[in-house]
Simulated scan of single mutants.
Amino acid sequence: MKPLFLLRLVLDFVAAGLLMAALAYYWLDNATHEIIGTAMFLLLIAHNIFNRRWYGTITKGRREARGIATKIINLSLLTTMLALLVTSVVISQMVFSFLPLTSSFTARQIHTFAAYLSLVIAAVHLGLHWSMIMGLVNSRLGVTTESKVRTFVLRGLATLIAAFGVHSLFAVNVGSKLFMQTTIEFWDFQTSTAAFFVHHAAIIGLCVFVSHYGLRLLQTPRQRSEYSGDRR
């Protein structure tokens, strides 16, 4: 594994972690929330610089399931992140407070909507590349042979995480965020801070599970072999 590629991968996971941390707005003070968000966007800018050549391939390449799905998800994630960035600037009370912009309740609603939609799409994006990631992990761990037992255990664990992720969708009330519904329910960080992050991690796991195995169902046996590197 090339050091630069490993660095890119680490930065991507750090950006995802910052996004999840930023969702805990009522656990953080506003200043910390904005600083985390700004750091996340700087990492996303770096991500796009590292992957700038991809934009030249949008109208090229084979029209197969993985390629089409990847392009749709990537462009959707870019659009959602831009919406998140714009609303961040509009509602900022510290980092961008010097700009002559007026915040509004609608802008905050769109910001929350874009944040949760970004989390979901980013997780789907991760799922589309899960075979590659697991292949790299196996390579680093020196795993070179297939194991039916290991495959069974890993798939079983993935299924359990996905099932808990479904429960977490309701526990966190993601639906109200994605439909921009006004609610008076807020997470109680004084009694269950860890649970907040566990639920969001499970939601990420659910989206990775659905996109990874959903894509495998759409692929031919040959395509599965080409993109399989996770021994699953």
Results as ranks from 00 to 15, higher is better:
residue 103 S to N: 14
residue 103 S to M: 03
residue 107 A to S: 13
residue 107 A to G: 02
residue 110 I to C: 02
residue 111 H to S: 05
residue 113 F to Q: 00
residue 114 A to M: 09
residue 114 A to P: 04
residue 114 A to K: 04
residue 116 Y to C: 00
residue 117 L to P: 00
residue 119 L to G: 00
residue 119 L to P: 00
residue 121 I to H: 03
residue 122 A to Q: 06
residue 127 G to D: 07
residue 128 L to D: 03
residue 129 H to V: 05
residue 131 S to L: 04
residue 131 S to E: 15
residue 133 I to R: 04
residue 133 I to S: 10
residue 135 G to L: 10
residue 135 G to M: 10
residue 135 G to R: 08
residue 136 L to S: 11
residue 136 L to E: 10
residue 138 N to I: 02
residue 138 N to Q: 11
residue 140 R to L: 15
residue 140 R to H: 12
residue 143 V to G: 08
residue 143 V to P: 01
residue 148 K to L: 14
residue 151 T to H: 15
residue 152 F to Q: 15
residue 153 V to T: 13
residue 153 V to W: 09
residue 158 A to N: 13
residue 161 I to L: 06
residue 161 I to F: 11
residue 161 I to C: 08
residue 162 A to H: 06
residue 162 A to R: 07
residue 163 A to R: 01
residue 163 A to C: 03
residue 164 F to I: 09
residue 164 F to E: 07
residue 166 V to I: 14
residue 166 V to H: 02
residue 169 L to Y: 07
residue 170 F to D: 00
residue 170 F to A: 04
residue 170 F to N: 02
residue 173 N to S: 11
residue 173 N to K: 12
residue 174 V to T: 14
residue 174 V to S: 05
residue 175 G to T: 05
residue 175 G to P: 04
residue 177 K to G: 01
residue 181 Q to F: 10
residue 182 T to F: 11
residue 183 T to N: 03
residue 187 W to M: 08
residue 188 D to M: 08
residue 190 Q to T: 11
residue 191 T to G: 03
residue 192 S to P: 01
residue 194 A to V: 13
residue 195 A to W: 08
residue 196 F to T: 02
residue 196 F to M: 07
residue 197 F to R: 04
residue 197 F to L: 07
residue 199 H to P: 00
residue 199 H to I: 00
residue 200 H to C: 07
residue 202 A to T: 03
residue 202 A to L: 10
residue 202 A to C: 05
residue 204 I to C: 08
residue 204 I to A: 10
residue 205 G to S: 03
residue 207 C to A: 15
residue 208 V to W: 01
residue 208 V to Y: 00
residue 209 F to I: 05
residue 210 V to H: 11
residue 211 S to Q: 08
residue 217 L to G: 11
residue 218 L to K: 10
residue 221 P to I: 10
residue 222 R to D: 15
residue 222 R to T: 13
residue 222 R to W: 09
residue 223 Q to E: 13
residue 224 R to P: 07
residue 224 R to Y: 09
